[in-house]
Amino acid sequence: MKPVLPLLLFALLLGFSCNRQVQRIETDTTVDLSGRWNDTDARLTAAELVTEIMGRPWLERHVSKTGGEPVVIVGMVENKSHEHIEAEVFTKELEKAFIQSGRVRLVQGGEKREQIRRERADQQNNASRSTMKEWGLEVGADYMLQGSINSIMDAYKRKKVIYYQIDMMLTDIETNEVVWIGDKKIKKFVKN
């Protein structure tokens, strides 16, 4: 009868040690696990690019030239790094900054725009004449935001240095002139 108690305790200990623990943490907490691209990198990139794009003279130049706010569309971001990096995490932050500042107007692009057009087409058949939306009244963008993500990795035995460079640029759609370039550079030293 005696060895039952230690066995029971051992079983309990084993049971508790195998339990998965989930802890909620603040979204701005830095947690580096593998050394790969993570949410902190995306957040830092977004913060820097928002500050850069909103504080540069292209905005004032456009307003003084045309008298209105610039209209921007988000184009393609090329990921030429060695990892899968989803650029939408930081491009969405830029879009949010445009809208919230009220100084830059944004037009929808990509699949979402296609969906809106499909809905408009559907309205031509199903909506009442007074609420039906017209074709050919979309706002044309003045600028397109494009970007690229590059990385360099140097590894030796259990150590590695990873360098990321995120470049975003704003180009005048009519003149092809690049009016703004912003970047974010991140360097990490990982020891396994």
Binding site: G75, M76, N79, H84, E88, K112
Partner: peptide, 9 residues
Amino acid sequence: TMGATIDKT
């Protein structure tokens, strides 16, 4: 291609 990340990893 608009608003998308194109992987050329």
